[in-house]
Amino acid sequence: MSLSVDAGSRTRTVPPGPRRHARPPGGRRLLSWLDLRAAPYFFVSPYFILFAIFGIFPLIFTAWVSLHDWQLAGDKTFIGMENYTELLADDKFWNAVLNTVGIFVIATVPQLLLALLLANALNKKLRGRLVLRLSILAPLITSVVAVAVVFTQLYGRDYGLINWVLGGLGIEPIHWQNAKWSSWVAIATMVDWRWTGYNAIIYLAAMQTIPKDLYEAAAIDGASPRRQFWGITVPLLKPTIIFTVIVSTIGGFTLFAEPVMFGAGLMTGGTTGQFQTVAMFIVKEGFRDFQYGYAAAAAWILFLLIMITALINFAIVRGLGRSR
């Protein structure tokens, strides 16, 4: 192979063939220009229009509301950043942030690890693989409220199944709602039960795009399955892991239905706010106490928290596998 082989093609000139027919008159030219240039924008516009109405506008309006002492059917006074300064000094808000982060960590870390291992197992040749693959997705299609109701009964203090089992082992019944650790664990299991399969399926789909010859080559070089998993699967899944981490971060930070159901439908999240998440805090301020401005400010801070956490997670996960 030498560079000179195809050198000739560069100097070749296009033969002066007959010019195509004359340009169309102005009106049709505009139409064809529109067809070429504007039509694609027109076709994608429904999404952006809907996004502007239901995404951008509420964001901006919420920001506007957050600068007011905004009471529903009451006074609305512009107070600048006062809601934000008050919020940052409100230990109830920080308690909600702590709960949200705590539940997020103890729910998401085991969940994604488990999903990864499940996906790896399902990627192997197994009998009844399709049934297994479908069945791990089954929890996702159950209603979140149904999940929460069932789990809340399992975790019942007086008549719950878990306390009944613990009682058989001679352990005192636990009032799951009463302490931070126990309520977090209970809620994290509800989240995990529902979402582990979903993440596993996403990982599985990504795993199937990894070329088999990489594994074969590694096996010939003597790499153990464990080594193959950490050395090939995980690094090549990185974009997918980043995606699931970001989606889980958003889900974890807006956690709402499970803790609400767990706390008898109240927005207080336990008698001393043991498991009140930020989303519950916002609903409580906005729709129980009718402090829209304060709730709007909390919503914006939540938005910023999600952004920051997603970025941190992105940075952490990007470094994943690099050290291996």
């Binding site: 309006f61 979140v144 008898a264 916002i282 729709f287």
Partner: peptide
């Protein structure tokens, strides 16, 4: 008497209700 199932749906309103 807060309907136990009740409060949940309200959550979906949170971010848009101000609008």
């Amino acid at each position: 008497r807060r309907g136990v199932l009740a409060a949940v749906a309200a959550g979906s309103l949170v971010f848009t209700a101000a609008a």
